[in-house]
Write a protein that binds this DNA or RNA. Structure first.
Lengths: 211, 211
DNA sequence: GTCTATATGGGGATAGAC
DNA sequence: GTCTATCCCCATATAGAC
């Protein structure tokens, strides 16, 4: 993301000092390479400092990871909430869901190294780190469940749809996109529309007309 | 899976000798703990041998991993192919898709430590290992694409559905289930039906009647 | 706030006895 | 086929100079 000034040694970005600079480069590295392969030495090198210096800002590697995981959920939660809140009052269920899906996918694929790092490494980190990230995860999940339950109560969603199960399926499907998304084959927004088309109406040929 | 005779020391299964025994325990450990956290020492301990002995059967840790990844795809590929082939001639598109989805999810959640290990660790292994697994993956993907394209040619699926993209979405969604599936909340088969319901017909309330 | 130097532990892999 | 013993490397983390 940050361009490297042309005179710099390879593999070392310009100094990104301070706690936030370290988090930024660490999030990018975790996103790209996964949890285990990213060492403090590599984070330090990418930030333009030495490994020992990291301990002035953080108490442990896991402390860095927890900060990144939490920030990743915070970003996507805020984006999704904003996107839905910004819709005109009285928007239909399909419109609301499309907006929420698009916001989630944008944060994951376009915006945020923190969100994508979260999705990428959550399954790889030690249990204590996962536990530390749980509260913010639960809050985001609750936001989705509230949204979906509201739509179901309005009659926009099938009455027999299990909200929790559908939310797990939907978020799981969206997050899995990270593994194969290629911006050269289409934008995140275009992908959002395809997801929405499929989840809202399915893939079968319709005999009767439908929204 | 294998019961431990009651007199055995903790953390050590009964001897599972030979190459296949090592692969079995390694697949289970990779499934449970991910790639990086499973060491040769732990595999050896679980197999009831010492770490050095593994090198009689395998040239490296990566050789073990490649064997497990390949076997994981082979199992799910075979199961899916069998399930579809076993259907009565002239089965409808919805029936065929339901059978394929069910077979995939069964292999992943009920059957095979190899398949679930593949899904769990593929994103964590070194590039050379991923590359080695690519041919069998491509073959499985081709099986799905052929199935879906055939259904689309028959008019069972929407004509504007991008097959490759849908296949990535579907397999990604099914595989993501591994992260949250809890057999106490319902069987893999029940989950398959929910997936099929959603992907085939969507989640919106239908105004007109539909299959 | 960052450096150098180092303690400590664990990993994959190899050699040779049995 | 499995063992013990060991090499070598790299990880996190700490201590103290600057």
């Amino acid at each position: 993301m940050a361009e490297v000034p042309s005179g710099q040694p390879q593999g070392q970005s310009r100094q990104k000092v301070g706690r936030d600079g370290i988090l930024d480069v660490a999030a990018r590295l975790f996103r790209e390479h996964g949890y285990a392969h990213v060492t403090l030495r590599k984070i330090a090198q990418a930030a333009g400092i030495k490994a020992g210096s990291i301990y002035y800002h953080f108490g442990s590697k896991d402390e860095i990871v927890v900060a990144i995981l939490d920030a990743g959920i915070a970003v996507v939660h805020e984006q999704m909430h904003q996107a839905v809140s910004a819709l005109p009052a009285g928007s239909g269920g399909a419109t609301i869901l499309r907006a929420a899906i698009r916001a989630h996918l944008r944060a994951l694929l376009d915006f945020s190294d923190y969100t994508s790092a979260n999705v990428r490494i959550f399954g790889q980190v030690p249990q204590v780190v996962r536990d530390a990230n749980l509260p913010v995860r639960r809050a985001y999940e609750a936001e989705w469940d509230a949204l979906l339950s509201g739509l179901q109560a309005q009659g926009a969603l099938r009455a027999d749809l299990d909200i929790r199960r559908f939310r797990l399926m939907l978020i799981g499907a969206l997050n899995a996109t990270l593994e194969w998304f290629d911006p050269d084959r289409g934008s995140a927004d275009a992908l959002s529309d395809t997801y929405a088309d499929i989840f809202l109406d399915g893939i079968l040929t319709r005999t009767g007309g439908q929204t």
